[in-house]
Design a protein around this nucleic acid. Structure first.
Lengths: 214, 214
DNA sequence: CGAGGCGTCCACCCGCAGGTGGAGGGGCAG
DNA sequence: CTGCCCCTCCACCTGCGGGTGGACGCCTCG
């Protein structure tokens, strides 16, 4: 069973080029093509393709809105965004709207094919640069590291705290910082007093909540 | 200039197989290989590879922690996780720790090569299923709320862990859960063993990294 | 039925974490 | 110069946290 695709792009050359390109690929069958979001929504309802290859910048209704409406009415239809731009706004808007793939127009036919296959199988295939953005969003997502030291902690105390949050023992911290264990204890006692902490477990929580680690 | 790679996997067969496999690839040069996280950290400092191919489940120090330390000391070294498991916990923990690629062991040589290239060039290459998870996390808007418990923790153990992460002492936890302190200790000892933790400070870190709190 | 996992509990031991009270040197500002 | 803060270090004590090796009832599953 070939994968049935709907191509949506307002630029005629691009659209027709894509159609030709896609029909050369084994396992892919171009069910239709159109040039704006409104038509796309209508044609999905009519043709019921497996996957929609969607441009973002289009007249009358943009790709994000079209994606949203299509996913609303037909959640089982996979949508792969294929666009020139890969800025964060476009990426996140499209993914939030329900797109499962995101490629730039630098992509080759094989990449498009991979993306279509992945999306049809319920997976995802994104442009490597887009993957990077996502990874970064996830990595940063959660706790943006704040700059200043909370509660008047000294630099050294914060340093010790960070090591505590890394699960290091006092002896290990002493080794890490080339100071004696006694000094480590002093710093710890001081920072406990300043931050109103009882033990290192609370200290770790404190470190995470204040973005000193994470 | 060939891309220099460090292979990290505790299973000898897998590790040596990977080395052979990778050396067949043009453009890749295997700089070294080792079997646990501690060695990995040391070898990165010594060999300065371009990319580390990292397993997650390993003795002595797991891949997430090793990734974190490597990225801390050498932010320019790219890390690609190659593991059997693709659960949300592992994925997000690894990415948060600084991994830029994530593949499962179903990946073929070509996929590994693509991932290595992408990461060396500052991009990302993830397993399609992993991409899907990320897309869904983004689409869901918020951060991933994990359902399953990591490392085979029982519900009760996770409950105790959550209280530890909130800075509660054993006596307090006993009070919170209406059980004896002895029971609390038992749960703690069990979860320490399962998650390979040494003390409650490490437990708090673990809880945060696995999204049990935060 | 028996095996095994889970949750509950106990006694005992030990070490490191945490608290107290000091002391000395270097840097920076008033 | 003279505080004052930061970092460094010491001795001592206490107790909670963590490890060991059990025990028992309950449930599920083969």
């Amino acid at each position: 069973m070939k994968t049935r695709i709907l191509v949506v792009d307002d630029q005629t050359v691009v659209r027709e080029g894509l159609v030709l390109l896609l029909e050369l690929l084994p396992g892919i069958d171009v069910a239709g093509a159109c040039g704006d979001g409104e038509q796309a929504v209508a044609m999905v309802a009519e043709l019921r393709p497996d996957v929609v290859l969607m441009d973002l910048r289009m007249p009358r209704m943009d790709g994000v809105e079209a994606t949203r409406r299509i996913k609303e009415a037909h959640p089982d239809v996979g949508i792969v965004v294929l666009t020139t731009y890969a800025d964060d706004d476009s990426i996140f808007a499209a993914l939030r709207a329900g797109a499962r793939g995101y490629l730039t127009k630098d992509a080759g036919a094989d990449e498009i094919a991979r993306a279509v296959d992945a999306v049809r199988d319920g997976a995802s295939q994104l442009d490597p640069a887009v993957q990077r953005r996502l990874v970064e969003a996830v990595a940063a997502g959660g706790r943006p590291r704040r700059a200043g030291l909370p509660d008047g902690l000294t630099r050294r105390e914060a340093e010790v705290l960070a090591l505590i949050a890394r699960g290091r023992s006092n002896t290990e911290i002493a080794g890490d910082l080339f100071i004696s264990e006694a000094t480590v204890k002093t710093h710890i006692n001081n920072l406990f007093a300043k931050a109103n902490l009882r033990d290192r477990a609370q200290a770790v929580t404190y470190a995470y909540e204040h973005g000193l680690v994470g």
